[in-house]
C-alpha cells in the first residue's frame, strides 16, 4: 500500500463489493436514500390472511392448539383464586415471583406465596402480565423493562400470564402499531411467546418443556 492511500476497512470493502455486484458502484444518491427512508417509516404490511374471526374465540382456540391452558377472572382481584385453582389441580408449587404491578394482589388469602421481585434460578413459578396478546396465533407479546422482567416468563417451569381481554390484538402487525402508539421506542427485547417451550430434536417427536417453561397458563381478565 502506498502512503497516503486511504485504509479500506472490512466495512468499506464489503459495501464496495455489494455495490459492484449490484452493478451500480455507487451508494444510493440523496434522493433515493430519502425515498427509501420514507418507505421504511411507513412500514407497509405484507398481504394479510383472512382475519374475520372473533378475537377472543380465536385467541382461546389458538392457545389450546399451543398447549397453553386458559382460565378467566372477572377482575384482577379474582386472579389469585384462579391461580390457586390451577396450581392445586395440578399439584404444583404455590410459591414464586411476579411482576411488581401484581405485587399488591391478595395472594396470601388465596394460599399462595407470591413475591414481587425478579426470579432466581430456583423459582418454580413466574407470574407476569403482557403488553398485549396476539389472537391470530395465541401469542403473548412481552416487552423487557425494569418492571417487566423477561426472566420471570423464562426460567420457572410454570409461567402464568395475566391477560386483560382489552389487550387482545389481531396480528403481530397490530402489536407493532400498538407499541409505536404507546411507547417512545422499542424496549431492549420484544419476545413473542407462544405456549410452553418445545423440541422435536429426537426422532421428530414433540416434547413440551425444554429450556423455557413446561407449562404456560393464561388468566383472561374482564370482558
Amino acid at each position: 500500500m502506498n502512503p497516503g492511500e486511504p485504509v479500506m476497512s472490512a466495512r468499506d470493502n464489503i459495501l464496495a463489493r455489494i455495490r459492484t455486484a449490484l452493478g451500480r458502484n455507487e451508494p444510493l444518491d440523496a434522493q433515493q436514500s430519502a425515498d427509501m427512508r420514507t418507505k421504511l417509516r411507513m412500514h407497509p404490511r405484507g398481504p394479510q390472511p383472512d382475519m374475520s374471526w372473533d378475537l377472543l374465540e380465536r385467541f382461546r382456540e389458538r392457545c389450546t392448539i399451543l398447549s397453553t391452558t386458559v382460565d378467566e377472572a372477572v377482575n384482577l382481584g379474582e386472579v389469585p383464586a384462579a391461580v390457586a385453582r390451577y396450581l392445586s389441580e395440578r399439584q404444583l408449587p404455590v410459591a414464586g415471583a411476579c411482576w411488581p404491578e401484581f405485587g399488591a394482589l391478595p395472594w396470601s388469602p388465596a394460599g399462595l406465596g407470591i413475591e414481587a421481585r425478579a426470579v432466581t434460578g430456583d423459582d418454580r413459578l413466574g407470574i407476569t402480565g403482557t403488553f398485549c396478546a396476539v389472537a391470530e396465533t395465541g401469542t403473548l407479546m412481552l416487552l423487557s423493562g425494569p418492571d417487566t422482567h423477561p426472566a420471570t416468563s423464562l426460567l420457572p417451569e410454570t409461567h402464568i400470564a395475566i391477560v386483560p381481554v382489552s389487550r387482545l390484538v389481531r396480528s403481530m402487525e397490530d402489536g407493532w402499531d400498538l407499541l409505536r402508539r404507546e411507547k417512545e421506542r422499542l424496549p431492549r427485547q420484544v419476545a413473542f411467546v407462544s405456549g410452553p417451550s418445545r423440541t422435536a430434536d429426537i426422532e421428530l417427536t414433540l416434547v413440551l418443556g425444554i429450556h423455557g417453561p413446561t407449562r404456560v397458563h393464561v388468566v383472561l381478565v374482564g370482558d
Partner: peptide, 24 residues
Amino acid sequence: ATAQSISNYLSFTTGPKQAGDTDG
C-alpha cells in the same frame, strides 16, 4: 420449517440492557 403457525419464541433484540433493566 416445522409446520407450526408460529414458533414458540420470537426474540427481537435492540441494543444492550437499558437503565433500570434487571436482565439483559
